[in-house]
Structure formats: structure tokens, C-alpha cells
Design a protein around this nucleic acid. Structure first.
Lengths: 186, 186
DNA sequence: AAGTTTGTAAAGTTTTTTCTTAACGTATTA
DNA sequence: TAATACGTTAAGAAAAAACTTTACAAACTT
């Protein structure tokens, strides 16, 4: 039983391929949570099971898509730090491989995207709160507007508190302190 | 100074409007993190500063858009639990208001979206791991394929561990236990 | 220096998404 | 029962995104 016939081997290979494809499909489908398109998700999945770093041409062949698409797709994945460019001994073509640390991928995505959102919103909130606080000082402010300013200021302060919380949540992730409370290994 | 002229009041109102618009703009821009489009984000922002529940017609007027768009937009926001339908004493039109609990909004979004992704991926992972484990038992499996199965199984197990971690992270949020480690009030 | 190879940018096409107008169904009023 | 109001579905138009082909610039080879 040590040298099976070719048909059996093909069948075995098919099982592996199907097992991979199933996972790739599921993976790709849910990468929209990372703002990543289905086809780029497929690319990621393909690279995930490739045990060697891939070139753009290899990706194009595996995906049946243009090299340009691979180039932009890989760039997106690199921006999310899900894929790294690897330097290979005397090779002209660029080689890429997936970063297998999904915990860090998650954290990086979270940090980058949400931190940016927080900064932008907090900046707007601060400015508007400042404007409204100045307005509140005016002693000829009609009572109706005064109440309006009050409630707005309260809302903005609540928002600010929330973003502060979110910022600290990100800190917890980035510092890996989270693993104290939600440990990696079950 | 208790009855300012009309021009001054208009100026004051303008300041409030600008303060609100700045925040609305920033808010809307970042709601893509919730999978929400810019215009629907604007709708959310508009409702956020409205102190009374709004009808679809009021929204349409405020946004300069069709009622149909308001209908679908509000539905999206309701799916994310960012907006609630409020029942109003003897009113024919439906009224909606934003849910001001941003912490819960965040948690809900997180739970819903990521939990779904986890379930789908874990299901695929389990099936493929099962297939591969069965394949590993075959005693006529060529050595090359055997190694392939081994590394694949390891990858899938790592993925499974990651999703388990993510699931526990979501538990931490959903149970509000997170507020013990990252408290709301600074 | 001429000729390849490799990666990316630009332009154009196809597909998808977003928004509007029009039509429908249900509920309310007269 | 007829008439009106309200929300939503369906179909079409406009805008945006994804992909491909073509073209180009930089690096390497000879």
C-alpha cells in the first residue's frame, strides 16, 4: 500500500484543494469587515495556503486575473499589514507572503482605522465645543438659543467621553494588555 | 442688552449651525467604519442634533433628499440599532430618534458583524479540518501530501484558536465586563 | 548603451452601488 | 365606500468602484 495509483493520489489532492477552497471562500467573504473586497480576499486566502512567498505573476496565474490587479490588491493587503514583502536571495521579482499573526492583524486594523476616526471626530468636537462655550458667555443670548447651546454642549461632551473610552480600548489592544483579560491560548 | 437685534440673533444661530455641521461632517465621514454610507451618515448626524424624533418627511426636507432614501437610510440605521422608532401619541407618521448610547452602538455593531464572520469561518474551518484529519489516516498517502496536510492542519488550528479568542473578546464587550478594565468615566 | 524585465500609473470598460421617480398596498378619515 | 396619507417596493438613471488593457519608468543584463 506504499505506492498508490495515480487516480487515488489525484483524489487525495482534490480533497486538500477542496478543504482549502472552502476556507478561502469563507475567509474572503468576511474580509469586508477589514474593508477588503471579495477578490482581494480571495487573493489573501490563496497566499495564506501557499507555503512559499509568491510573485505577482504567480498570483495572477493562481487567481486568473491581471497583474495590475494583483499589484493593487497586494498593496491594499500590505497597507493593512496582512501581507509582507519578503526579500529573496538574488530574485528580481518581488515576493510576498501573508503575515500569519492574525491577532496582530486585527489589532493593527483596529488601531489604524479607528484611531484615525477618533482623531478626526475629536478635533471637530473640540472646535465646536469651543465655539459654543464662547457663545454661551454672551449675555444677550436669547433664552431659547441658550438652552439649545446647553443641550448641544452636553451631547458633544458625551461624545468626547465616548471617544476617550474608545481610545483607551485601543490602547488596551495595542499594548497587548488585553491578553491578560482575554488570553490567547484557551 | 436683553433684546438683541435680529442680525445679532441670526449670527448666533449661524454659529450654532456651523458648530453642528462641523460635527455632523466628521461623524458622517467616519461612519464607513460601521459600513454606513456618507449620506446616511449625514442623516444620522442630522437626527443626532434634532432634539425631537423626526418623521421621514422632515428628514427628507432637512437632507434635501427623497423620502425613499430616508426610508432605506433609517432602516439601515435601525438595523445597526443606532436609531429607534418611537411611538408618538396619536401621530400617523412614524417617528425616529437616534439612540444616544454610543458605547452600546459600538458593542452591538461589533457583536453582530464579527460574530457572524466568526461563525461562518469556524464552520468552514471545522469541516476542512475534519476532511484533512480523515485524509491523514490513509496509510497510502504520499509523503509530500502528508506534509502538506500537516501544515494545513496547523494553520487551520491556529485560525480556530484566533477565532476563539475573538469570540471571547466579543463576550467581554457584550457582557460589559470590558468596563471593568476600560471604565466609562475617566 | 541597447534591450529586457518588473512594477505601477492612466485610460477605458464593465459591474456594482446609490439615489430618484413612479407605482403599490395598507391604514385612516370622511 | 371613496378618498387621502403613509411607508415601502420596483424599475430606471446617475455615480462610484473594480478590473483590464495599454503605456511608461526604473532597474537589471548584456
Amino acid at each position: 500500500m506504499n505506492s498508490p495509483n495515480e487516480a487515488t493520489v489525484n483524489q487525495y489532492e482534490m480533497i486538500i484543494k477542496k478543504a482549502r477552497d472552502r476556507v478561502i471562500e469563507a475567509l474572503a467573504k468576511n474580509m469586508d469587515l477589514y474593508g477588503i473586497t471579495l477578490s482581494v480576499g480571495h487573493l489573501y486566502g490563496t497566499m495564506f495556503f501557499q507555503d512559499k512567498p509568491m510573485t505577482l505573476d504567480e498570483m495572477g496565474a493562481a487567481m486568473g486575473m491581471s497583474k495590475t490587479s494583483m499589484s493593487t490588491g497586494v498593496r491594499q493587503l500590505m497597507e493593512q499589514k496582512m501581507v509582507n514583502k519578503v526579500w529573496m536571495k538574488g530574485a528580481r521579482k518581488d515576493h510576498y507572503e501573508v503575515d500569519q499573526d492574525w491577532y496582530q492583524n486585527f489589532i493593527d486594523y483596529f488601531s489604524t482605522k479607528w484611531r484615525k476616526a477618533i482623531d478626526l471626530n475629536v478635533q471637530a468636537l473640540r472646535r465646536s465645543m469651543n465655539d459654543l462655550t464662547l457663545l454661551k458667555e454672551k449675555d444677550d443670548l436669547p433664552e431659547e438659543l441658550q438652552r439649545c447651546v446647553e443641550t448641544d454642549l452636553e451631547k458633544l461632551q458625551n461624545a468626547l467621553d465616548y471617544y476617550d473610552w474608545l481610545s483607551r480600548l485601543i490602547d488596551l489592544l495595542e499594548s497587548h494588555e488585553i491578553f491578560q483579560y482575554v488570553p490567547k491560548k484557551l
